[in-house]
Simulated scan of single mutants.
Amino acid sequence: MKATEFDAKFDQEEDITEFLDLSQAKRPGHEQKRVNVDFPAWMIEALDYEAKRLGVTRQSIIKVWLAERLEKSAHRNIQYIDV
């Protein structure tokens, strides 16, 4: 398929995934990096309780909660910059 044909399909909002090799696809800025954090036992118990209640893993709940907090913080920082 020529690039012009591919572009036309994309512009017409057709499904182009069959023409892509997604095995090597990467999301810039989303590379994984391992960190170790020590938590007190009570915090681990609370995290495990919430994770079980929500049906997710401990790691997932930590990631989601941290992401939410960082987004709020970034949003507040942007508001101060705009003023």
Rank of each mutant, 00 (worst) to 15 (best):
66 L>H: 13
51 A>P: 01
68 E>D: 07
51 A>Y: 11
72 K>P: 02
79 Q>A: 06
74 A>R: 02
47 L>C: 10
73 S>Y: 14
17 T>S: 06
3 A>P: 08
49 Y>G: 00
75 H>M: 10
67 A>C: 12
74 A>N: 03
11 D>R: 15
32 Q>M: 02
70 L>G: 02
42 W>S: 06
74 A>F: 04
2 K>S: 08
29 G>I: 06
33 K>T: 05
29 G>L: 04
48 D>Y: 07
27 R>H: 03
36 N>W: 03
43 M>I: 02
5 E>Q: 10
13 E>G: 12
64 V>W: 15
7 D>I: 14
30 H>G: 10
34 R>I: 01
14 E>D: 12
14 E>W: 11
27 R>Y: 14
74 A>M: 09
27 R>T: 13
39 F>T: 10
80 Y>H: 11
56 V>F: 11
62 I>W: 11
8 A>G: 03
80 Y>R: 09
19 F>G: 02
51 A>T: 06
40 P>W: 04
44 I>P: 00
60 S>C: 15
49 Y>N: 08
81 I>F: 10
69 R>M: 03
29 G>V: 01
59 Q>G: 07
66 L>K: 13
76 R>G: 01
3 A>Q: 15
60 S>V: 12
42 W>G: 04
20 L>R: 02
61 I>Y: 10
18 E>V: 05
57 T>A: 14
30 H>N: 03
79 Q>W: 07
56 V>T: 14
36 N>Q: 02
50 E>I: 11
63 K>S: 14
55 G>D: 09
81 I>T: 07
78 I>C: 00
11 D>G: 15
35 V>R: 13
39 F>G: 03
54 L>C: 13
5 E>A: 14
30 H>P: 00
57 T>V: 15
10 F>A: 14
6 F>Q: 04
17 T>C: 08
63 K>G: 13
5 E>N: 08
62 I>E: 02
80 Y>T: 05
11 D>N: 15
75 H>K: 14
63 K>M: 13
9 K>N: 10
34 R>H: 04
55 G>C: 14
10 F>S: 04
52 K>I: 14
31 E>Y: 15
35 V>F: 07
48 D>C: 06
32 Q>I: 10
12 Q>E: 10
22 L>G: 09
69 R>C: 01
52 K>F: 15
39 F>N: 06
52 K>Q: 13
25 A>P: 03
44 I>Q: 04
56 V>W: 11
23 S>V: 09
55 G>T: 09
48 D>T: 08
14 E>I: 09
76 R>P: 00
51 A>F: 06
39 F>E: 01
73 S>V: 08
41 A>E: 02
70 L>I: 08
6 F>S: 02
16 I>A: 07
69 R>S: 02
80 Y>S: 08
1 M>V: 12
35 V>T: 12
81 I>G: 00
66 L>R: 08
22 L>T: 09
14 E>H: 11
51 A>G: 01
22 L>W: 14
60 S>W: 11
4 T>N: 07
68 E>P: 00
25 A>K: 01
38 D>K: 04
74 A>G: 00
21 D>I: 12
36 N>M: 01
24 Q>C: 05
34 R>V: 09
5 E>S: 06
27 R>E: 12
16 I>W: 09
43 M>E: 01
17 T>R: 00
33 K>E: 02
56 V>H: 12
49 Y>F: 04
17 T>H: 06
77 N>F: 05
83 V>H: 07
38 D>P: 01
17 T>Q: 07
